Amino acid sequence: MPTGVHLRDVRTQLFDAAERVLLRGGPSALTSRAVTDEAGCAKGVLHKHFTDFDGFLAELVLDRIAQVQARSETLVAQAGTGSVVDTVADVLTEVFSSVAVSVVALITFRDGLRARLRAARPGPGVPLATDAARMLARYLTAERDLGRLSADADVDTLAPTLVGAGHLLFADRSGDEAALRPMVASVLSPVLE
C-alpha cells in the first residue's frame, strides 16, 4: 500500500470506500483491510482517524443518518407538490437503492456496531431505517396538514409500514422497483384525499 500519499478528506474517502465494499460484498466482506485497500491507503490511516473498526462503522452509519435527516428538510418542503404516492415511492427508492439496505444488514450483523449506535443515539428501532421512517412521517404530516391526506391519517403507523415494506422489496439488494409504487399506493390509498 502507498504511504505518504496525502488524502484530502480521509473520512469521506474511507466512508465511500466502505460503501463500495459493502455494496459489492455485503457485511461479511467489510473489513478494515478491505476498506483501506478500496480507498488506496495504508491500513494505519483508518486506525489513525478512528478508535477501532466498529468506531469507524458507527461514524459511517451516523454520517448516513445525518444525510437522511438533511433530506428530510427538502422532502417536507416538497409537500403539496406532485403526487404523494410518487414522492414516497421515489424517496423509498432513493433510500433503499442506496447503501441503506446494506447498512441495515451491517447493523444487524455486528453486535459491537449496534452497541455503539445505541450509545450514540438511544431509542428503539434499527438506526437508519428508523430515521427513514421519521423522515416519511414528517413528510406525511406536512401533506396531512395541507389536506392531501385525511385528517385522521395515522402517519406514525404509515411511515414505518412503508419503510418496512420498502425494505423487504429491496432486502436482497436487487430492488423490486416495479412492485414499489403499487405497494405505496395500496398503503396510502385509504388516506389519500
Rank of each mutant, 00 (worst) to 15 (best):
Q67I: 04
T161C: 15
H167L: 14
A115G: 04
A34K: 02
S186K: 04
G125I: 08
A142G: 10
L62Q: 00
V10K: 03
R24N: 13
L30H: 02
S72Q: 05
S28M: 08
A185S: 13
L62Y: 00
F109P: 01
M1T: 14
D37I: 04
Q78A: 11
A18C: 09
T141L: 14
R20I: 12
R71Q: 12
G40R: 12
V163M: 07
V184A: 10
A39T: 03
G25Y: 06
T81R: 03
V35A: 10
D90K: 03
Q78D: 13
L136A: 13
L169H: 08
F170I: 09
D156Q: 09
S102M: 06
D145H: 04
L136D: 11
C41M: 09
V99F: 02
I65Y: 00
H47W: 06
M183C: 07
L136I: 11
F56D: 00
S83I: 10
G80L: 11
A178R: 13
R181T: 15
G125T: 08
S102E: 12
L113H: 02
E143W: 01
V99C: 04
D90V: 07
R24Y: 09
H49D: 11
L22W: 07
G166C: 09
P190Q: 12
G80Q: 08
L46G: 05
G125K: 06
G125H: 06
P2Q: 14
D172T: 09
L7C: 05
V99M: 04
V101Q: 14
L149P: 02
A105S: 13
T157E: 14
S98H: 12
S186V: 06
V10Y: 02
G125A: 11
T157Q: 12
A100N: 07
V68M: 05
K48C: 03
S32Q: 05
T31P: 01
M183E: 11
V61G: 01
L57A: 05
A153D: 07
F53G: 00
S97Y: 06
R138S: 15
M135L: 15
A151E: 07
V101F: 13
E143Y: 01
R148M: 13
L149I: 04
Q67G: 06
